[in-house]
Design a protein around this nucleic acid. Sequence first.
RNA 1: GCCCUCGUGGUGAAAUUGGUAGACACAAAGGACUUAAAAUCCUUGCCGCUUGCGGAGUGCCAGUUCGAGUCUGGCCGAGGGCACCA
Length: 846
Amino acid sequence: MSRYNFKLIEKKWQDYWDKNNTYKVISNPNKRKFYCLEMFPYPSGRIHMGHVRNYTIGDVLARYKSLQGFNVLHPMGWDSFGMPAENAAKQNNLNPKDWTEENINAMKNQLKKLGLSIDWEREISTCSPNYYKHQQKLFLELYDKGLIYRKESYVNWDPIDKTVLANEQVINGKGWRSGAVVERKKLNQWFFRISNFAEELLSDLDNLDQWPEKVKIMQKNWIGKSFGCEIDFKIDGSEKVKSIKCYTTRPDTLFGFSFLALSVDHPLSKLYEKDKNFLSFRDECSKTGTTEESIAQAEKIGFKTELLAINPLNENEKVPVYFANFVLMDYGFGAVFGCPAHDQRDFDFAKKYNLEIKTVVKPFDETDSFTVNDEAYTGSGTIINSDFLNGLKVPDESIAKTIQILEEKKIGNKKTNYRLKDWGVSRQRYWGCPIPIAYDEKNQIHKIPEKDLPVLLPDQINLNTKGNPLDSVDQWKKININGKNCIRETDTLDTFVDSSWYFLRFCSSKDNDNSFNKNEIDYWMPVDQYIGGVEHAILHLLYSRFFTRAINLNNKEFELKEPFKGLFTQGMVCHQTYKDQNDNWLSPDDVFSNNGNDYFIKTKPSEKVMVGPSESMSKSKKNTIDPEKMIEAYGADAVRLFILSDSPPEKDIQWSETGMTSAYKFIQKFWSVSQNIIEIVNTESDKSINNEIEIFTNQSIEKINTALEKFRYNVIIAVFHEIFNFFNKVSENRKNYQNLKENYNKILIVVSPVIPHLANECLNLMASKNFEWPKVKKEFLEKEEKEIVIQINGKKRGNILINKKTEENEILAKIKELDIIQKYIKDKKISKTIYVKDRLINIIIK
RNA sequence: GCCCUCGUGGUGAAAUUGGUAGACACAAAGGACUUAAAAUCCUUGCCGCUUGCGGAGUGCCAGUUCGAGUCUGGCCGAGGGCACCA
């Protein structure tokens, strides 16, 4: 028998699917739909193993649903705007468009070699004017709805390159190219009012029952709803400032108040703009960076003002007012009251400036003389040292009660707050969707008229100018709107905008006039299963949820709110890392090993390689494996099989060469047993019925069904091995049982989502007519006899085979006679027995 | 720093969701077949004494329960996110 020639057979089926447009779908109201979507890739040039994993998981689901009779929409596109194109273009003196389009072509070819069941006719690319003109229309629609506005906000500014840097381009506070210390700079930028939807985005999470719990928790914390109180602190004897408003979630610690801290962007900072010391303090703060992490990690520093704030619950207590680097203007009122004993940031600050640390909460198991020493106490307990608040239980009782008192005294008001900030969408870059706005000579905002859309990116661009590239294209910038000379907005949109509605566009990607077609949206949306990396758990998914709501607002034509009914987040693909003696990363292609433990450099076999931990594959660590090479060496089916086999899809998977080769061997073995069976079925003539085959097949399908529904794809591969082991035995005696063909046909169907090329070839050779997902015959799942575990005091001591109808007391009587049990119970008294039907019996003895 | 998730044999893992821990594989060792090798097949999680038997065992420490990998609390370790990477 010939070996399985995957090169020939995979090519044959891929060409067949292409030619016959097998995976093209059109909406059909009479057919149940299933929208299966994987997060679309950034066209970096070559697919990586993460893509292989993502798209294989999705493809298995799409093929499964299709065999079940669903009308499956399974599209693919390109998230093709973004910084890498701009960087590559700068480096190699190319055009970002050409670079991107070449990459798309290359990656499309690679994806096709994986044998994915994709409707390529719906392909979209976000950098194509066909896509972004609709995005510009959507932008203007949302603008008209009042969901988009302009305000000043900070960016990372590289003072040498005179350019805005992304967070990833800031390394240890310095610009990645220039090495200059990065500053915070204020720019006028566009924002989406996502915070208008904070409550809805939060409460609707409860309805997403097919989302991973952890993603919902992450989004919940991100939105950060908190219940607290706004408090007006009176300022002592100042002409200029009467009071300062703070937001707090811990009003119950008000007696521990020892300073009041303001953001450097607080309106009161205007009063200090002539103070040199304040200005140098503000400069110092601007070096902290713009990320929350850098602010949280930075040393707490402050600038002391002459102002004194009065404790509203104790008018004799007056504490200093500072500007401090850890207070954010975006949250609350940009002002916080400091209680060092019960907040770690306040504690660090108080230690630095020798402020009082007054303990007002004690843990339940401490006495009233408890004091905070080395770190803030933020746990539960009882209020102490707080006059009329003493004795209240923290947090449940104390916070509510204090708010009530503050409201009665007209000092503060109960307030709900959200951490979620509005979404800044302006990017000072070339390779993005132009914002369809212009400004007249008085700096008034004008929308670009619809007839002038799309605002196309200029083709000719010099990316090596300093600052925002579009800003230097004078002829492009100028536009006349209703007779007024205007200058275009030169910022482009955040690429997260592109990916916030692409799933809508897939439903009618060919429609030139409309962003999306109502009938198509009504039929296909929501996405039934969305699959992608957990790194998108917050931003991309939240922005998409916002976008559908923003479109939905005041729009009777569009009923959708939640875009993704089901969500699955897959783990990363990892590989060992290698370094040479000089600490340079080495690729797996550069090293070899004879025993699997010690590695050496191929070109210098005497030099030992340092083997590092397995980490997610990345170019910078050189620990990548090229999927195309693997497909060429082992075939798409083997690669698909391996990428699913070793770990559950939501967990990280370790790439291993031995795992890959064993998947390849399995493909060969499975082919060979299939050929045996096809031969038997077509030539041998024994016609007896084999009940074992019936039982095994039905049990296997049942296992596969359960595992498929729960994304336990690695378990499915284990069942495939069981299938091989079983049918390998069955085929040994070369009997053509009457039920062999029917059952093996079913087996080929249920393996086909994972290894579609091999399965289709075998089904073809068997001349199968049936391409439906098999129904499980329940009567073959249950056996008459059942093995029951015998436990003595919860420990397993043996088991017994009984008929399922046997009553509990009968079972117990039988067990008592068993020798293995006798020795445990003969001198003891049975005080209790616990019987779990069909599973175990636990005998408690004394 | 803050938030989230995950820790099961030498390795990847499975476990009907509180009921036989280690299915299915990978690796290694031993054995069978062979002139030899390859391939194939069989055995092996750990500790103890004799095939049998007994004991411990799911990161660590407590707890709930007849019974805990699974539930609760604390600790340790690894990974992800932190708003301009996508």
